[in-house]
Computed example of a mutant assay.
Amino acid sequence: MPIATKLHVRSKPRAILKPGGNIVPVHEETTRHNKKKTQQGPRKQVAEISESLVVVGSNVCLDLDSTCSSDSSSVKKVNSANGNGNSKMKRNGFKLPVRDAAHVSLPYKGEPPSKTCDWITPNSDPVYTSFHDEEWGVPVIDDDTKLFELLVFSQALAEHTWPTILNHRNIFRKFFENFDPSSIAQFNEKKLLTPKINGNNPLLSEQKVRAIVENAKQLLKVQHEFGSFSHYCWKFVNNKPIKNEFRYGRQISVKTPKSELISKDLMRRGFQCVGPKVVYSFMQVSGLVNNHLLTCFRYQQCNVTMKNEIKTE
């Protein structure tokens, strides 16, 4: 009887089948297992940081009481490792509570900065900014000298900008004798020679100065007829400022039907250089119309100022 020979056969590991029935090599399964194991670390870190996120409306911000610095760095590492960040994590069955760590912003501490009209920027002349914050749009009532000054400034806008006018305000007041209509009406030919500003530039052109002198004479007649220039101006708006509700500076026109009406009446009375655009600038600066933007902090303040003026009358 033949002797059985023992064969030493190297044992082959049990085959692992894919869903389609194909055999998966052992080394591939081991690689997949290790990769899955390494992914659990970042997922755990992201899960921890998600607990420190506070959702406010449509914006997401980090809770200041949590360890923001370490957690935010963990999220950045996860996103850089996964390429697309959230999109790849979603494909792997894990959803982040935020769109991307780069979109996470810290909440604003303290009161937000006051908003102002669009034409006032951080680069605006400080004198112009102060003028906007303190004078522009404030209703001027029973002060003919102030109203005449603002009318002259509105006329001067054809030759200068607001910052230039305001920076030379003292020169204007000195030359026009504090805008007293009685004094200006007595100007002679010698007085019409205006001083120089910015080197060789005259304060105003001779034509403009002559128009202002003539306007002072006509203003005295208006005072005699209506009691004051203030009463004459405010009757056009029924003693109540027009309150526009503009959100953007581009919505403000350069003239309106109301300014055209006032312009025609002034010219009929002998006033010069008082076109609809000049009159509308005068209406805005003197508070006959409130053209501060709705987002500007001065909009409501100017409305309150007018109410207080009415109560004290």
Rank of each mutant, 00 (worst) to 15 (best):
I3S: 13
A4D: 15
T5W: 09
L7N: 13
H8T: 15
V9C: 06
R10E: 13
P13C: 03
A15I: 04
I16D: 02
P19A: 07
G21T: 00
P25N: 05
V26P: 00
E28Q: 06
E29T: 06
N34H: 10
K37S: 08
K44I: 07
E51L: 07
S52G: 10
L53D: 08
V54P: 03
V54L: 06
V55F: 02
G57W: 00
G57Q: 02
G57I: 00
C61L: 07
L64P: 05
D65G: 02
D65P: 00
C68T: 02
C68N: 05
S70L: 14
D71G: 10
S74N: 08
S74P: 01
K76Y: 06
V78W: 05
S80T: 05
A81R: 03
A81Q: 06
G83C: 01
G85K: 03
N86R: 13
N86M: 06
S87G: 04
K95T: 13
K95R: 11
A102Y: 13
A102L: 06
Y108E: 14
K109W: 00
G110H: 01
P112K: 03
P112S: 03
K115D: 02
P122W: 00
P122I: 01
T129H: 03
E135S: 08
I141A: 08
L147G: 01
F148P: 01
L151A: 02
S154E: 09
Q155F: 00
A158L: 10
E159R: 07
T161Y: 03
W162E: 12
P163S: 11
L166Y: 06
H168G: 01
N170L: 02
I171A: 07
F172E: 04
F172Q: 02
R173N: 08
R173C: 04
K174Q: 08
N178I: 03
P181T: 09
F187K: 12
K190L: 09
L193H: 10
I197D: 09
N201V: 15
L203K: 04
L203Y: 12
Q207D: 12
K208R: 13
V209I: 12
R210A: 12
E214V: 10
Q218R: 09
L220E: 11
V222P: 05
V222C: 05
H224I: 13
E225P: 04
G227N: 06
H231D: 10
H231Q: 05
H231N: 12
C233Q: 09
K235P: 04
N238T: 14
K240C: 15
K240M: 13
F246I: 02
F246Y: 15
R247C: 08
R250M: 10
I252N: 11
I252K: 08
P257N: 13
K258A: 13
L261W: 13
L261T: 14
K264S: 11
R269F: 12
Q272R: 14
P276M: 14
S281Y: 09
F282W: 14
V285A: 09
G287T: 11
L293D: 12
L294S: 10
L294Q: 08
Q300M: 05
N303E: 15
N303I: 15
M306F: 15
